[in-house]
Amino acid sequence: MPYILNTDEVDERERAEFVHEALGSTMVPIELHWPGHHRSVDARGIITDLGDLTVCSGRTTALRVERTPALARDSTEPSIFINVQRSGSSIVVQHDQEAVLQPGELVMYDSTSPYTLLNDMGMSGYFFRIPHSALGIPHDMIRTACAVVLRPGHPVTSLAHDYLSRLAADPALTTAVNADFIGHPSIELIRAVITIHLRADEFAAEPLAATLQLRILEYARKHLHDPDLSVEQIAAAHHISVRHLYKVLARSEISLSDWIRTRRLEACRHALAATPAAVTIGAIARRHGFSDMSSFSRAFRAEYGISPGEWRRR
Rank of each mutant, 00 (worst) to 15 (best):
V84A: 13
V93E: 14
R86K: 15
L53S: 01
T68V: 08
A99T: 03
V92W: 12
P69N: 10
S90Y: 05
F81E: 12
T68F: 06
V65L: 13
A62I: 06
G88H: 11
A62G: 06
V93T: 12
I80N: 00
R86C: 04
Q94R: 04
E66R: 14
I82R: 00
T61N: 11
R59A: 07
D96S: 15
T61E: 05
L71T: 02
L71R: 01
S90N: 12
S89N: 08
R86N: 10
R67L: 07
L71I: 06
C56E: 10
I80T: 00
T76R: 07
F81S: 12
R73K: 11
A72T: 05
R64H: 11
V93F: 06
Q97I: 01
V92K: 06
D74V: 04
H95M: 02
Q94E: 11
S90Q: 13
V84I: 14
T61A: 08
G58T: 13
T68L: 01
E77Q: 11
S79R: 03
P69L: 13
R73I: 03
C56G: 05
T61F: 02
I82W: 03
S90R: 14
E66G: 01
T76W: 09
E98F: 00
A62S: 12
A72S: 15
I82V: 15
R86P: 00
Q97T: 07
S79G: 08
V55W: 09
V84R: 07
V93C: 13
R86E: 04
D74W: 00
I91E: 15
R67M: 00
I82N: 03
V100W: 07
P69R: 01
Q97V: 08
P78R: 03
L53E: 10
Q85F: 02
G58E: 09
I80E: 00
T61L: 03
S87H: 14
S75L: 06
S57T: 10
R86W: 01
R59G: 11
D96N: 14
H95Q: 04
L71Y: 02
V92T: 14
P69I: 11
A70K: 10
D74T: 03
D96H: 15
G88D: 10
S75A: 14
A70Y: 10
G58A: 13
A99Y: 02
